[in-house]
Structures are given as C-alpha cells and as structure tokens.
Simulated assay, not measured.
Amino acid sequence: MVLGSALPAVAETTASDVEPFLVEGRIDDGIAAMKTRLKTAPTDAEAQYALGIFTTLEAVENLSQNLHKYGLRPESPRIPFMRLPVPLNPNPEKLTYAKWRGIMQQFIDDLGVADAELSKVDDPDVKLKLPVGLIRMDLNGDGKSEDEETFWKVFTAVAWRAAKLDEDQQRFEIGFDKADVHWLIGYTHLLRAMGEAYLAYDTEEFFDNTAAIFFSGIDSPLAQLKADQRNAFMDQFADAILAIHMVNFEVAEPQRMEAARQHLLTMISHSRLVWEYCTQETDDDREWIPNAKQTSLTPLTVNEARIQGWAMFLDEAEMVLEGEKLLPHWRVPGERGINLKRVFTEPTRFDLVGWAHGVSALPYLEEGSKVSPDTARTLGQTFGGRFTVFAIWFQ
C-alpha cells in the first residue's frame, strides 16, 4: 500500500437501501442502520435524510402507540393529536392527567430529535425517491406492521382526508428533495407549537371530565351517566357542550407560550426555504411540492399566483406573530385590534367563550395596523376558495 493513496470512495445511500425498512415497518432498524452508515460516511446526505425521515416516523409511531396503550376510542372526536387511526385496544392501561402530559411532552421531544437530524441535511442536491403509499408503521405497539398500519392511512386521517390512492397508485412514490427537508422541519415546529401551547395551561379539570370521551382507559364522572343508545347524537351534543364549557384554563407554564410562538416563527422561515429551493428546480421528478412548471402529484394545481399568494400569507403571519400587525375581532370597532404577540408573551387564563364573546381580548387590544379583510378575500380568490387545503399541503 502506498502511503498517501486515496481511500476507496464509499457509495452513497440510495432509495433501495432505505425502502425495505419503510415497507416492512422496521423504523427502529432503519434508524440504527442509518446511524451506522453515517459513522463510516458522515457526508452521506441521503443517509442523513433517511435518518431524519425515520425519526419523524418514529415520533408519530410513539404517539400512536401511547394513544393505543390507553384505549383511544376509534369513534372519538377528531381533534388535534387524537386523529391517528389507532386500532381498538380492548384492555387499555389506566390513563392519568400526569401520564397524558407526559405523552404530549414525549411527542414534542421526539419531534425535536427529528428536527435535529433533518437539519443536518445540507446538500442542496439531496434526493430520495420513496414509496410513501407503502410505508408501514407499528401503530399499536405489538411489534408488527399490518396492512392497515400504513403511513398513508395516518396522513389521510390527520391531514388530507380526500387523498385516497387507487390500486394503480398504491406505491405513490415521491422524490424527496431539499425543499421537502424544510417542509418536514416546518411540520415538526408546527406540531411542537401546538403541543407547547397546550402544555402551557392547567387542563386537569378539563381532562378529568372529558378524557373518557376519547379514552376507554380512564375513570370518569361520565361513567355514572346513562348514555342514550337510541340517540347517540344527543350524547355527542352534550359532550361537546361540556367540552366548550370547560375550556377555561389557568396558565401553568407561561414560558411554553413563547416557545410555541418561536416554533411558529421558525416554521414560517422554513416554509420560505421550501419555496426558495422549489422555485429553483428544473427537473420534474415525482415532486411533493411542485413549482409552477412541475407536475403535481395531487389534484391541486400550483401556479405563480399561488406561490406569490402563499408568500404574502407568510409575511402577514410573521407580522402578526411579531405584533407588527393586529388581528381584528368582530366586536372591536375602529383601529383597535388584538396584539397576538402579547397573547403569547403575556398569557393569562384562556377562556374559549370569553374569546368568542370578546371580553378575553380586551387586555390585548391596541391601536395600529390591522390585518385587512381584503387579504383574506385575495387569498380566497387566489386559491380558488380552498386556502385551508393548500395551507395543509404547503404548511
């Protein structure tokens, strides 16, 4: 061997190296394999990307398994963090308020791990073409990944209920590129913002009286009440009224509200990076977020007007979060509006009915530039009346 000779090049990770772990639902094995790979090839961007994807899936899988452990009811209302299609558990463990907060904190922490791994992907030309429709997960923690435990089922239940795949689309291959790195990172921040905002408040009384609506593994005062099996609508109506009535929370950990605001601001910055990379692309290779010249894998269409409209929305949202623009309230006349930044930085008791009424907004009212109704109308027209659908897709 000649001293100073170059070491043989190590082949980059390819989709074929990653796909078996995904389609077989071996998320933990995939994480271990990519970590081993990166020890020998620390500059392998595709391996780092795969590790970020695996850790993101692990966060969702862990949350799902926790929900299953405590008997999430399949028929429960589909509110955030409760929309995962978890299989029925006939023998759930007992859920307490402390355990529930622990579940939420674990999800936040797991997403932080995913964010950290995805943030290490620094190659602008990184690419992994993966069969999203075939990705399996162990949603109930039994060590198996069944046909019904697919990531696509989770995605459609949580985010895009209309996104169904026919037999010819079952593989649904997506070419994940650098733009999608920032798309994934942005979603980790959005979900953490929601979790931090929830944990900022003392919701124990709400939990004690409403958790049995969602979980079978809990003792609740509702168990003493008779359900009308002939008219389930009245039960659901009564439960909804109770839930609304009890959304009146004292602040428990106010610093979490500022953490939530920072997550939202970071999400906005990554959404801008999605489009910075996306609009520079010249290929057209199974794009998840396409530019105006690329082919969409969804029924939705991207054009220059919608790209500019989304940029306008991000600018407005950032100014609102920074207190540079005020939010209108239907009962507040004149030039006054709600300083949303202060809602996060100076949190007080959260009373849902009080906010709807207007009385809870009074401490945060200021005079200044407000978000114009024209902005909402412009966005509605630009996105064909489907702004919310596009927002879920674009993030």
Rank of each mutant, 00 (worst) to 15 (best):
E12Q: 15
E12A: 15
S16Y: 00
I31F: 04
K39I: 12
A41G: 03
P42G: 05
A45R: 06
G52A: 05
L57R: 02
E61F: 07
L67Q: 09
Y70E: 07
G71S: 03
L72C: 01
R73S: 05
P77W: 02
R83I: 05
P85Y: 08
P90R: 04
R101V: 07
A116D: 10
V121K: 00
L130M: 14
L139P: 04
F155N: 08
E167H: 10
R171I: 12
D177Y: 12
K178F: 02
H182E: 06
L190K: 09
L199A: 06
Y201W: 03
D208M: 08
F214M: 08
I218F: 00
I218A: 00
S220L: 01
S220N: 01
N231L: 12
F233H: 09
Q236F: 13
Q236L: 12
D239V: 10
A240C: 08
A240W: 10
V251G: 04
P254F: 13
A259E: 14
A259L: 09
A260W: 09
Q262C: 08
L265C: 00
V274L: 03
E276C: 03
E281H: 04
D285G: 02
P290S: 01
N291Q: 05
S296N: 00
N303W: 05
A305S: 13
I307M: 06
M312D: 13
E318M: 05
V320R: 04
L326A: 01
P328F: 11
R331P: 00
E346S: 15
E346R: 14
T348P: 02
F350W: 03
P363K: 09
Y364M: 07
S372C: 05
P373H: 07
A376R: 11
T382L: 05
T388V: 12
